[in-house]
Design a protein around this nucleic acid. Structure first.
Lengths: 120, 120
DNA sequence: CCAAGGTACCTTGCAATGCATAGTACCGTG
DNA sequence: CACGGTACTATGCATTGCAAGGTACCTTGG
């Protein structure tokens, strides 16, 4: 059994933290108002959530395939047409469940922090 | 291009939410006091964070390989010996960084919720 | 008219991780 | 000494973030 030490990469950890929960912020944004991809990227960036194209587009496709969002093409004042995504009824329901899950996770983790952090 | 609809699975979403960020609670627990795997599972369960063996053991191995934790064998009052994990100095540093990342994520998401949720 | 640059969308392949499943090994007890 | 409980380990799959590369539309300057 090799015992090679492997440097711990905090950047990777942050990246992994984003994993699987990005659907929630994206649904939140689309749920508030029809939007298209580059605008979603800007809003996430404003919120300090770094997401890149290569992550967002497949995510939007998944949401579409699952029926949580729909879209329609809209002409742009300058440039190619835009896919304006809108949330569906099913999307709204899932959004609420995701929010519940998030709150639960949030509470759990913050409780753990408060409970264990004093020991340092 | 196939347009087959794929049911959205909230359980899977929850599972994905846990992804990559479990290191943080686990490090928190080990950082507070030397512990062994089944006890960590209990504490996570108490905190409402469902984790199973098949997830925890590989995670502990990774933490060990990265030098964030160490362990020593301790005889059990009944049953096989236990791997008592302890946090290392490097582990404490990473723990603080993970906590910073968590707080940042927490703030971002809660801000998004407050900002967008009113539109419903 | 057309070349160049900007905008918008999409795809492919890799790495990391949660988890189900199955397996190994130690221990005490009846 | 067989059996059940405790503890640890290994294998393989599915999902997802992301880097990198690509296609297509539109406007503008020469």
């Amino acid at each position: 059994m090799s015992e090679e030490k492997q440097e711990y990469n905090v950047e990777n950890a942050k990246s992994q933290m984003r994993k699987g929960f990005l659907e929630f912020p994206v649904l939140l944004i689309i749920g508030a108002k029809p939007t298209y991809a580059p605008d979603i990227l800007k809003q996430l960036k404003n919120a300090n959530l770094l997401v890149v194209e290569g992550t967002l587009y497949p995510l939007l496709s998944r949401l579409k395939r699952s029926g949580l969002v729909g879209y329609e093409w809209l002409e742009s004042p300058s440039g190619p047409p835009r896919k304006m995504y809108t949330i569906t009824l099913e999307g709204k329901e899932v959004l609420q469940q995701l929010e519940t899950s998030w709150r639960s996770l949030d509470t759990s983790v913050n409780t753990l922090i408060n409970h264990y952090e004093k020991s340092n």
